[in-house]
């Protein structure tokens, strides 16, 4: 694993891989959008409005995936003192937060025609909102601490505590919600998804995933370059400027 801890090696490898990932992302998006906007049939109940799920579901999935990536790379960074893993966790946070915001936004846009209101305290919406808060807290830790090594350690503890709690919070929010409103408005067991809709959804999830990886690589690269600039400036004795 420490083979990949070297930032220079990461830069070399990622420069080779990145064009392929970018190309794949564009291809998957093109295919996915074609399927989801044109090939997938109109829903007999919801009309064309339902097509927002092709953005909403992948975004919600990436939001959770992103927190998982942060937690795993934080654990690796904390246990093996792996600097690249710390940077990966740091680079993931804004991406995950953006996907969470996108999922909340598309969810509420979908909610208006479906439920007649932009926001209800549905269990899923609420847990998503709390996930967003956890992302904000994690990002704030990185911003609050000057010393990068210390910030990495503190942030990894925050993310691991958050991971344990996000599971408990999810459970308790479900519990709270089922007691408050027994008949939930959002029922997924109604129209089962199939055919071109399913293909479109899977393609979009794959596209979002590739996009996530591509942006993550860009962000790690730019973080590494930032550090290099910092240390070069220090070597020149010019201060941090």
């Amino acid at each position: 694993m420490h083979k990949f801890a070297n930032p220079a090696r990461f830069m070399r490898l990622s420069n080779i891989v990145l064009p392929w990932i970018t190309g794949l992302t564009i291809l998957l998006f093109a295919l996915g959008l074609y399927y989801s906007l044109i090939l997938a049939p109109e829903d007999y109940q919801m009309g064309n409005t339902y097509r927002i799920i092709f953005v909403h579901v992948p975004a919600a999935y990436m939001a959770q995936f992103g927190y998982g990536v942060i937690a795993v790379s934080s654990a690796i960074g904390f246990i093996w003192k792996h600097p690249l893993a710390d940077q990966a966790a740091r680079a993931t946070a804004p991406i995950g937060a953006a996907f969470t915001a996108l999922a909340l936004l598309t969810g509420s846009l979908w909610g208006k025609p479906m439920w007649g209101t932009y926001w209800i305290w549905d269990a899923r919406l609420t847990s998503m909102l709390i996930l967003f808060f956890l992302y904000l807290g994690y990002i704030a830790v990185w911003q609050a601490i000057e010393d990068q090594v210390k910030a990495a350690k503190i942030a990894s503890i925050v993310s691991l505590v958050g991971l344990v709690n996000v599971i408990i919070i999810k459970f308790s929010v479900d519990w709270w919600n089922t007691l408050h409103q027994p008949a939930t408005l959002m029922r997924m067991d109604g129209p089962t998804i199939g055919g071109n809709m399913l293909i479109a959804l899977l393609l979009m999830i794959a596209a979002f995933n590739m996009f996530f990886v591509a942006v993550l690589f860009w962000r790690i690269q730019s973080l590494i370059l930032q550090r290099r600039i910092r240390s070069l400036r220090l070597q020149l004795g010019g201060g941090l400027g």
Partner: peptide
């Protein structure tokens, strides 16, 4: 910012 979200389960139950 860090702690309040973690208090939610206590509040709920």
């Amino acid at each position: 910012l860090l702690i309040l979200p973690l208090y939610i389960p206590v509040l709920i139950f």
